[in-house]
């Protein structure tokens, strides 16, 4: 098992170099630079422009800049945002918990609905329920997030008044960030109603962000279950007289879970992409919007640092998924 984990970890290193180098070079290939972008209509005189580029170290050849950057990264220094002058790591630390909180809730939502729906659809193959789940999940998968989010806001917040429009918590509450996870912080703060306020603010964004993963999980679970349900050992289990619940829930589902876990792992990347739009619609202070803004403003340090940090998280999750295979299915860890 240890060897299996080590092999997986060693693959992370080249990926890491690839990701940082790509982020570094690509943003510099985009015309324009941060100083000029900040100058806007009025422009900036060439002399001041050159001096500021020098101050930020942007006058060096790209590879030299990359070398210096990696050196700093290895010492734990991700640099400062050119726009706000705040350290990248601090901005990330402020915003990241919000994204994680949202993404976790979205995944939980997707799993809670997606897994059972997929299983039942497979067991009741070709029933109305099955067709219903497949149609709805196809619609969910193709849903433009932006439109979906606005639709839910208009219906649930504006028309029905059931949920707040946007933000993370009612402005009445003044929560001191401790963990950065508002569900936790609001409980710690001991203010009456704060937790429920935070929870009610999470409902719509979690649904919106969880919609695509939900659809994918439901469809994946269904097809994996169908395959497994046709296997000999399932017939054997049934022939042994095991209860249908045991056959499906234990024997079939466990084996069907392998591709599903893979998909959930892959959805982490999708979640971050979806987070960009979801965060914008729901004024959710997370890293998605932060990164997009950094591209528009050519804020190199933020973009590089953000991609590096998020890349690390995605790689870590994929690593965990890989290791999980081994746990779920002993054949995988033994053959490799």
């Amino acid at each position: 098992m240890l060897r299996f984990v080590l092999t997986r970890v060693s693959l992370v290193v080249p990926t890491f170099i690839g990701v940082t180098l790509l982020a570094f070079v690509l943003i510099r290939l985009v015309p324009g630079d941060p100083i000029e972008t900040m100058a806007g209509e009025r422009g900036i005189d060439p002399e001041r422009h050159a001096r500021l580029l020098r101050e930020y170290g942007l006058d060096q050849p790209v590879l030299v800049q990359y070398g210096i950057y990696i050196g700093r990264v290895l010492r734990g220094d991700l640099g400062k945002s050119i726009v706000t002058s705040a350290p990248v790591i601090e901005e990330f630390a402020t915003l990241f918990p919000a994204t994680i909180e949202l993404a976790l809730c979205a995944v939980i939502f997707a799993l809670l609905l997606g897994l059972p729906a997929g299983v039942v659809a497979a067991v009741r193959r070709n029933s109305i329920f099955d067709h219903g789940v497949m149609t709805v999940s196809l619609a969910g998968y193709s849903m433009p997030i932006f439109w979906w989010g606005l639709l839910l806001i208009l219906l649930f917040s504006v028309k029905l008044g059931l949920t707040p429009v946007s933000g993370r918590i009612d402005l009445l509450y003044y929560i001191e960030p401790v963990t950065g996870f508002l569900l936790v912080d609001s409980l710690l703060s001991d203010q009456e109603g704060a937790f429920f306020s935070a929870l009610s603010h999470l409902v719509l964004p979690a649904i919106v962000l969880g919609t695509v993963p939900l659809a994918v999980i439901a469809r994946m679970t269904r097809s994996a279950m169908l395959e497994v349900l046709g296997e000999d050992y399932i017939r054997t289990a049934r022939a042994k007289g095991l209860s249908p619940l045991r056959v499906v829930g234990l024997h079939a589902l466990r084996n069907a879970l392998i591709p599903v876990v893979t998909v959930i792992g892959l959805q982490v990347g999708v979640l971050f992409t979806g987070a960009i739009l979801t965060e914008t619609i729901f004024s959710w202070p997370g890293v998605g919007k932060w990164l997009v803004e950094s591209i528009n403003r050519r804020d190199y340090p933020v973009l590089q640092g953000g991609i590096l940090l998020i890349g690390t998280v995605v790689m870590a999750v994929n690593l965990v998924v890989d290791v999980l295979y081994g746990v779920i299915n002993p054949r995988i860890r033994h053959t490799r």
């Binding site: 606005l150 806001i153 208009l154 917040s157 504006v158 429009v165 946007s166 933000g167 402005l171 914008t280 619609i281 729901f282 004024s283 202070p285 919007k289």
Partner: peptide, 13 residues
């Protein structure tokens, strides 16, 4: 200041 980047959402609020 409730920071709300999307114009339609600002209007909803």
């Amino acid at each position: 200041f409730a920071i709300t980047p999307d114009a339609s959402v600002r209007w909803a609020k």
